[in-house]
Amino acid sequence: MRSDRVRLFQTLPHACGYFAERTAQNLVIDPAAPQLDQLYGPALERGFRRAGGHLYYPYCTSCRACTPCRIDVERFTPDRSQRRCLKRNEDLQVIESMAGYNAERHALYERYLRQRHPGGGMDEADASDFRRFLTAPWSPTMFLEFRQGPRLLGVAVTDVCQQGLSAVYTFYEPEETARSLGTFSILQQVALAKRRGLPWIYLGFWIAGHPKMDYKRKFRPMQIRTSEGWVEMAEG
Protein backbone atom coordinates (compact mmCIF):
# COMPACT_ATOMS: atom_id res chain seq x y z
CA MET A 1 0.00 0.00 0.00
CA ARG A 2 1.69 3.20 -1.16
CA SER A 3 1.00 6.31 0.91
CA ASP A 4 0.31 8.36 -2.24
CA ARG A 5 -2.58 6.06 -3.09
CA VAL A 6 -4.09 5.18 0.29
CA ARG A 7 -4.57 7.58 3.17
CA LEU A 8 -3.68 6.43 6.69
CA PHE A 9 -5.04 8.07 9.81
CA GLN A 10 -3.75 7.79 13.36
CA THR A 11 -6.28 7.59 16.16
CA LEU A 12 -6.10 9.62 19.34
CA PRO A 13 -4.68 7.82 22.40
CA HIS A 14 -7.20 5.54 24.09
CA ALA A 15 -7.14 2.95 26.87
CA CYS A 16 -5.15 -0.15 26.00
CA GLY A 17 -7.19 -3.34 26.03
CA TYR A 18 -4.26 -5.45 27.27
CA PHE A 19 -2.30 -3.32 29.73
CA ALA A 20 -4.35 -1.21 32.15
CA GLU A 21 -1.54 1.28 32.73
CA ARG A 22 -0.93 2.00 29.05
CA THR A 23 -2.63 3.94 26.29
CA ALA A 24 -2.86 2.78 22.70
CA GLN A 25 -3.11 4.25 19.22
CA ASN A 26 -3.91 2.71 15.85
CA LEU A 27 -3.15 3.41 12.23
CA VAL A 28 -6.39 3.14 10.24
CA ILE A 29 -6.76 2.90 6.48
CA ASP A 30 -9.13 5.60 5.24
CA PRO A 31 -12.56 4.06 5.99
CA ALA A 32 -14.04 6.08 3.12
CA ALA A 33 -11.67 4.58 0.54
CA PRO A 34 -13.82 3.08 -2.23
CA GLN A 35 -11.52 0.08 -2.74
CA LEU A 36 -11.37 -1.33 0.81
CA ASP A 37 -12.40 -4.76 -0.46
CA GLN A 38 -9.35 -4.79 -2.76
CA LEU A 39 -7.04 -3.42 -0.06
CA TYR A 40 -8.06 -5.96 2.56
CA GLY A 41 -5.88 -8.88 1.41
CA PRO A 42 -2.69 -6.81 0.96
CA ALA A 43 -3.42 -5.12 4.30
CA LEU A 44 -3.58 -8.52 6.02
CA GLU A 45 -0.21 -9.34 4.51
CA ARG A 46 1.17 -6.18 6.11
CA GLY A 47 -0.22 -7.04 9.53
CA PHE A 48 -3.47 -5.06 9.54
CA ARG A 49 -6.70 -6.40 11.01
CA ARG A 50 -10.40 -5.74 10.50
CA ALA A 51 -12.74 -4.54 13.25
CA GLY A 52 -16.14 -3.62 11.86
CA GLY A 53 -15.55 -1.47 8.80
CA HIS A 54 -12.03 -0.43 9.80
CA LEU A 55 -8.65 -1.88 8.83
CA TYR A 56 -6.21 -1.00 11.58
CA TYR A 57 -2.72 -1.63 12.91
CA PRO A 58 -1.57 -0.87 16.48
CA TYR A 59 0.91 1.98 16.39
CA CYS A 60 1.72 3.17 19.90
CA THR A 61 4.49 5.69 20.56
CA SER A 62 6.13 3.83 23.45
CA CYS A 63 5.07 0.22 22.87
CA ARG A 64 5.38 -2.33 20.06
CA ALA A 65 4.03 -5.34 21.97
CA CYS A 66 1.27 -6.23 19.49
CA THR A 67 2.78 -8.55 16.87
CA PRO A 68 0.80 -9.79 13.84
CA CYS A 69 0.70 -13.59 13.67
CA ARG A 70 -0.55 -16.27 11.30
CA ILE A 71 -0.75 -20.06 11.09
CA ASP A 72 1.03 -21.93 8.30
CA VAL A 73 -1.94 -24.02 7.12
CA GLU A 74 -0.10 -26.56 4.97
CA ARG A 75 2.40 -27.47 7.69
CA PHE A 76 0.00 -27.34 10.64
CA THR A 77 -0.66 -30.57 12.53
CA PRO A 78 -2.85 -30.55 15.65
CA ASP A 79 -1.07 -31.48 18.87
CA ARG A 80 -2.43 -33.95 21.42
CA SER A 81 -4.55 -31.37 23.25
CA GLN A 82 -6.04 -30.11 19.99
CA ARG A 83 -6.84 -33.64 18.87
CA ARG A 84 -8.68 -34.18 22.17
CA CYS A 85 -10.61 -30.97 21.52
CA LEU A 86 -11.71 -32.29 18.12
CA LYS A 87 -12.75 -35.58 19.74
CA ARG A 88 -14.82 -33.79 22.42
CA ASN A 89 -16.71 -31.91 19.74
CA GLU A 90 -17.40 -34.74 17.30
CA ASP A 91 -21.11 -34.31 18.03
CA LEU A 92 -21.12 -30.79 16.57
CA GLN A 93 -22.08 -29.90 13.03
CA VAL A 94 -19.97 -27.17 11.37
CA ILE A 95 -22.00 -25.08 8.93
CA GLU A 96 -20.65 -22.47 6.51
CA SER A 97 -23.24 -19.71 6.72
CA MET A 98 -23.80 -16.25 5.32
CA ALA A 99 -22.66 -13.50 7.66
CA GLY A 100 -25.29 -11.32 9.24
CA TYR A 101 -27.53 -10.62 12.17
CA ASN A 102 -30.33 -12.78 13.46
CA ALA A 103 -31.94 -13.08 16.87
CA GLU A 104 -30.39 -16.48 17.64
CA ARG A 105 -26.85 -15.29 16.93
CA HIS A 106 -27.41 -12.07 18.84
CA ALA A 107 -28.69 -13.88 21.93
CA LEU A 108 -25.58 -16.10 21.96
CA TYR A 109 -23.34 -13.06 21.40
CA GLU A 110 -24.94 -11.28 24.38
CA ARG A 111 -24.52 -14.29 26.67
CA TYR A 112 -20.89 -14.64 25.65
CA LEU A 113 -20.06 -10.97 26.25
CA ARG A 114 -21.81 -10.82 29.62
CA GLN A 115 -19.86 -13.85 30.83
CA ARG A 116 -16.47 -13.16 29.25
CA HIS A 117 -16.31 -9.35 29.19
CA PRO A 118 -18.50 -8.05 32.04
CA GLY A 119 -18.34 -4.30 32.51
CA GLY A 120 -16.07 -3.90 29.51
CA GLY A 121 -18.42 -1.72 27.52
CA MET A 122 -19.35 -4.51 25.09
CA ASP A 123 -21.68 -6.49 27.34
CA GLU A 124 -24.82 -4.54 26.38
CA ALA A 125 -24.48 -5.00 22.63
CA ASP A 126 -27.67 -4.38 20.69
CA ALA A 127 -28.40 -5.41 17.10
CA SER A 128 -26.60 -2.40 15.61
CA ASP A 129 -23.52 -3.11 17.75
CA PHE A 130 -23.51 -6.70 16.49
CA ARG A 131 -23.65 -5.63 12.86
CA ARG A 132 -21.17 -2.77 13.25
CA PHE A 133 -18.49 -4.84 15.01
CA LEU A 134 -18.70 -8.18 13.20
CA THR A 135 -19.50 -7.28 9.59
CA ALA A 136 -18.88 -4.59 6.98
CA PRO A 137 -20.54 -4.08 3.58
CA TRP A 138 -17.22 -4.56 1.76
CA SER A 139 -15.77 -7.44 3.80
CA PRO A 140 -15.71 -11.04 2.45
CA THR A 141 -17.17 -12.45 5.68
CA MET A 142 -18.75 -15.78 6.45
CA PHE A 143 -19.97 -17.24 9.74
CA LEU A 144 -18.90 -20.75 10.70
CA GLU A 145 -21.70 -22.01 12.95
CA PHE A 146 -21.21 -24.84 15.44
CA ARG A 147 -24.44 -26.67 16.24
CA GLN A 148 -25.42 -29.53 18.49
CA GLY A 149 -28.56 -30.58 16.67
CA PRO A 150 -30.62 -27.40 16.34
CA ARG A 151 -28.79 -25.65 19.21
CA LEU A 152 -26.27 -22.96 18.23
CA LEU A 153 -23.15 -23.30 20.39
CA GLY A 154 -20.68 -21.03 18.61
CA VAL A 155 -19.95 -18.73 15.69
CA ALA A 156 -16.52 -18.08 14.15
CA VAL A 157 -16.58 -14.80 12.23
CA THR A 158 -14.23 -15.50 9.32
CA ASP A 159 -13.07 -13.31 6.45
CA VAL A 160 -12.09 -15.16 3.27
CA CYS A 161 -9.34 -13.45 1.23
CA GLN A 162 -7.01 -14.71 -1.49
CA GLN A 163 -4.11 -14.43 0.97
CA GLY A 164 -5.88 -16.62 3.54
CA LEU A 165 -8.55 -16.56 6.22
CA SER A 166 -8.73 -13.91 8.89
CA ALA A 167 -10.12 -15.14 12.21
CA VAL A 168 -11.95 -11.95 13.13
CA TYR A 169 -13.88 -12.99 16.24
CA THR A 170 -15.42 -16.04 17.88
CA PHE A 171 -18.29 -16.12 20.34
CA TYR A 172 -19.76 -19.23 21.90
CA GLU A 173 -21.93 -20.66 24.66
CA PRO A 174 -20.18 -19.62 27.90
CA GLU A 175 -21.57 -22.61 29.83
CA GLU A 176 -19.77 -25.05 27.50
CA THR A 177 -16.24 -24.39 28.76
CA ALA A 178 -15.26 -28.07 28.72
CA ARG A 179 -15.54 -28.12 24.94
CA SER A 180 -12.77 -25.51 24.41
CA LEU A 181 -14.81 -23.93 21.64
CA GLY A 182 -12.25 -21.17 21.06
CA THR A 183 -9.65 -23.78 20.13
CA PHE A 184 -12.23 -25.74 18.16
CA SER A 185 -13.09 -22.67 16.09
CA ILE A 186 -9.47 -22.14 15.03
CA LEU A 187 -9.12 -25.82 14.14
CA GLN A 188 -12.23 -25.56 11.98
CA GLN A 189 -10.88 -22.45 10.28
CA VAL A 190 -7.68 -24.35 9.51
CA ALA A 191 -9.80 -27.14 8.01
CA LEU A 192 -11.72 -24.59 5.93
CA ALA A 193 -8.48 -23.04 4.66
CA LYS A 194 -7.19 -26.48 3.66
CA ARG A 195 -10.40 -27.22 1.76
CA ARG A 196 -10.08 -23.94 -0.11
CA GLY A 197 -6.34 -24.19 -0.71
CA LEU A 198 -5.55 -21.05 1.30
CA PRO A 199 -2.07 -20.78 2.87
CA TRP A 200 -2.63 -18.75 6.05
CA ILE A 201 -4.91 -18.22 9.03
CA TYR A 202 -4.40 -14.67 10.28
CA LEU A 203 -4.98 -14.59 14.04
CA GLY A 204 -4.60 -10.88 14.63
CA PHE A 205 -1.99 -9.92 17.21
CA TRP A 206 0.17 -11.84 19.65
CA ILE A 207 1.79 -10.28 22.73
CA ALA A 208 4.78 -12.07 24.21
CA GLY A 209 4.16 -13.12 27.80
CA HIS A 210 0.53 -11.99 27.89
CA PRO A 211 -1.77 -14.71 29.33
CA LYS A 212 -4.67 -13.80 27.01
CA MET A 213 -2.45 -14.36 23.98
CA ASP A 214 -0.58 -17.49 25.02
CA TYR A 215 -3.06 -19.84 23.29
CA LYS A 216 -1.92 -18.61 19.87
CA ARG A 217 1.55 -20.11 20.39
CA LYS A 218 -0.02 -23.58 20.39
CA PHE A 219 -0.97 -23.42 16.70
CA ARG A 220 2.35 -24.25 15.12
CA PRO A 221 4.05 -23.56 12.89
CA MET A 222 3.22 -19.92 13.60
CA GLN A 223 4.68 -16.91 11.85
CA ILE A 224 5.01 -13.41 13.29
CA ARG A 225 5.60 -10.19 11.40
CA THR A 226 8.77 -8.28 12.25
CA SER A 227 10.58 -5.32 10.67
CA GLU A 228 12.16 -7.90 8.31
CA GLY A 229 8.78 -9.33 7.30
CA TRP A 230 7.13 -12.61 8.27
CA VAL A 231 9.37 -15.04 10.18
CA GLU A 232 8.66 -18.30 11.99
CA MET A 233 8.06 -17.95 15.70
CA ALA A 234 10.78 -19.57 17.77
CA GLU A 235 9.95 -22.62 19.88
CA GLY A 236 9.57 -22.25 23.62
Score class of each variant (00 low, 15 high):
Met1Arg: 08
Ser3Gly: 15
Asp4Asn: 14
Asp4Thr: 14
Arg5Gln: 15
Val6Pro: 03
Phe9Thr: 12
Gln10Asn: 15
Pro13Tyr: 05
His14Phe: 13
Cys16Gly: 09
Gly17Gln: 09
Gly17Thr: 02
Ala20Ile: 08
Glu21Arg: 08
Arg22Lys: 15
Ala24Val: 13
Val28Thr: 14
Pro31Glu: 10
Ala32Asn: 12
Ala32Met: 14
Gln35Pro: 00
Leu39His: 08
Ala43Tyr: 07
Leu44Thr: 10
Leu44Pro: 02
Gly47Phe: 00
Arg49Phe: 07
Arg50Phe: 04
Gly53Ala: 14
Gly53Thr: 12
Tyr56Ser: 13
Tyr57Ser: 10
Tyr59Gln: 13
Cys60Trp: 12
Thr61Ala: 15
Ser62Val: 13
Thr67Leu: 14
Thr67Arg: 12
Pro68Ile: 06
Cys69Thr: 06
Cys69Ile: 09
Cys69Glu: 01
Val73Lys: 00
Val73Trp: 02
Arg75Ser: 13
Arg75Gly: 13
Arg75Cys: 08
Phe76Arg: 01
Thr77Gln: 10
Pro78Gln: 03
Asp79Ser: 03
Arg80Tyr: 01
Arg80Asp: 02
Arg83Gly: 02
Arg84His: 07
Cys85Trp: 00
Cys85Glu: 04
Lys87Pro: 08
Arg88Pro: 03
Arg88Ala: 13
Asn89Trp: 02
Gln93Asn: 08
Val94Lys: 02
Ile95Cys: 11
Ile95Gly: 05
Glu96Ile: 13
Ser97Tyr: 10
Ser97Arg: 12
Met98Gly: 15
Tyr101Asp: 09
Tyr101Cys: 07
Asn102Gln: 11
Ala103Cys: 10
Glu104Asn: 01
Glu104Val: 13
His106Pro: 08
His106Val: 00
Glu110Trp: 14
Leu113Glu: 10
Arg114Gln: 15
Gln115Phe: 13
Gly121Asn: 11
Gly121Phe: 10
Asp123Phe: 10
Glu124Met: 12
Glu124Gln: 14
Ala127Phe: 07
Ala127His: 09
Arg132Asp: 15
Thr135Ile: 11
Trp138Asp: 14
Ser139Gly: 07
Pro140Leu: 01
Pro140Ser: 09
Glu145Arg: 08
Arg147Asn: 06
Gln148Cys: 04
Pro150Ile: 01
Leu153Glu: 05
Gly154Ser: 10
Ala156Thr: 09
Ala156Tyr: 03
Val157Asn: 03
Thr158Tyr: 04
Asp159Met: 02
Gly164Thr: 09
Ser166Cys: 06
Val168Cys: 13
Tyr169Pro: 00
Tyr169Ala: 10
Phe171Gln: 06
Tyr172Phe: 14
Glu173Leu: 05
Pro174Val: 04
Pro174His: 05
Pro174Ile: 03
Ala178His: 15
Arg179Cys: 01
Leu181Lys: 03
Gly182Glu: 00
Thr183Ala: 03
Ser185His: 05
Ile186Ala: 01
Leu187Ile: 06
Val190Gly: 00
Ala191Pro: 01
Ala193Glu: 00
Lys194Asp: 05
Arg195His: 05
Gly197Gln: 01
Gly197Asn: 02
Trp200Ile: 00
Tyr202His: 01
Leu203Asn: 05
Phe205Thr: 03
Trp206Val: 06
Ile207Lys: 10
Ile207Arg: 05
Met213Asp: 04
Asp214Ala: 15
Tyr215Val: 06
Tyr215Phe: 12
Lys216Glu: 05
Arg217Pro: 03
Arg217Phe: 08
Met222Cys: 09
Gln223Cys: 01
Thr226Lys: 04
Gly229Ala: 02
Val231Asn: 02
Glu232Lys: 04
Glu232His: 03
Met233Leu: 12
Met233Phe: 03
Gly236Lys: 12
